[in-house]
Nucleic acid binder design. Structure first.
Length: 307
DNA sequence: GGCCAGGACCTTA
DNA sequence: TAAGGTCATGGC
């Protein structure tokens, strides 16, 4: 794995009841928070329209309400401090990886014009390292669904079943006084299928319930999945009723650091047919195939909505 | 009012 | 083994 050896400069601030940090580093030059939070990998962040920065996205991750703001090559993280950044948000944002080397690796492995175009178009996208249970549940919800509605359902589930978060110090960064963490597997399991169905999950309710059961009782051991190969990890995830290859690949990529996992949804299927040889092998993309996949996904949607 | 959305499962042949 | 139907729901 490529490790970022370039030194970051982290400055800490405190403003009334709110602590925040400012980060500058070469990696921030390959970071665009608006692409990161609108490329379909994460569903709990919203743009904060009244930001004093060029762009700002706020939401809940790892049980905390946080906001990420950016002006050019400066990244601000509100409601955190340096220690928490180093322990949590650095890895969450993948700022411990050097994306230049990752993109070079992709380009060296596979040579198609669309790869260059997609990497260029999506410049700044980074694959977040999100919480495994939240990712499993979120991508079960994603099936045969669209992104705005996925976000709405996840918000409703969190409000109904998640722990309250006191976010009073973050109302000037898009928070309500009370926000809600993503519910635990056992809270989700205890909720039961019919209430999950009431939360507009529809036919996915029984899938979510089975996932919650298997994770809560240890049939699926989240901590063990990190240590497995990509193939083993995907195969374990597919033991959940309602998790097939596409959802399992999303989980492997977005939660378990399996950067060669390559989710194929309707968009990526279209991309493969449109730009690649008929029998192109996914392994040709190399060990960062999943990251290439995310740039291709963003690129194709970008073309669709910017014509 | 049919079609589509970051699909998976079940039935049928 | 492959193809086609089914499942909830909302936006267009």
């Amino acid at each position: 794995m490529q490790t970022n050896s370039c030194k970051e400069i982290i400055k800490s601030f405190s403003d009334n009841n709110l602590s925040y940090i400012k980060i500058t580093s070469p990696e921030i030059e390959l970071t665009d928070i608006s692409k990161i939070f609108s490329c379909g990998q994460s569903f709990r962040f919203e743009r904060y329209e009244h930001s004093r920065h060029e762009k700002e996205f706020c939401g809940v991750a790892y049980g905390k309400f946080v906001s990420f703001a950016q002006d050019d090559n400066e990244l601000y993280i509100y409601n955190t401090n340096e220690a928490e950044y180093l322990a949590l948000w650095q890895r969450y944002l993948a700022l411990d990886l050097t994306y230049n080397e990752i993109m070079q690796n992709i380009l060296e492995n596979i040579s198609y014009p669309v790869i260059n175009e997609a990497l260029n178009c999506g410049r700044g996208i980074r694959i977040l390292n999100q919480e495994p249970w939240e990712v499993i549940c979120s991508f079960i919800i994603s099936q045969n669904n669209n992104i705005p509605r996925i976000k709405k359902i996840i918000k409703a589930i969190s409000k109904a079943l998640g722990e309250k978060i006191d976010a009073g110090n973050m109302t000037s960064h898009g928070a309500s006084d009370v926000e809600f963490a993503f519910p635990t597997p056992s809270a989700t399991k205890n909720c039961g299928v019919s209430l999950l169905c009431d939360l507009k999950t529809g036919f996915r309710a029984k899938y979510i319930f089975d996932a919650a059961q298997k994770v809560a009782n240890g049939d699926i051991d989240i901590n063990q999945l990190y240590a497995l190969t990509t193939e083993q990890c995907i195969s374990e995830l597919c033991k959940i009723y309602g998790v097939g290859l596409k959802v399992a690949n999303c989980c492997a990529l977005f939660a378990f650091e399996k950067y060669d996992a390559f989710p194929v949804d309707v968009w990526i299927k279209r991309v493969l047919e449109k730009y690649f040889d008929e029998n192109v092998n996914i392994s040709a993309f190399g060990k960062y195939a999943g990251i290439a996949q995310q740039y291709l996904f963003y690129y194709e949607k970008y073309l669709q909505f910017n014509r």
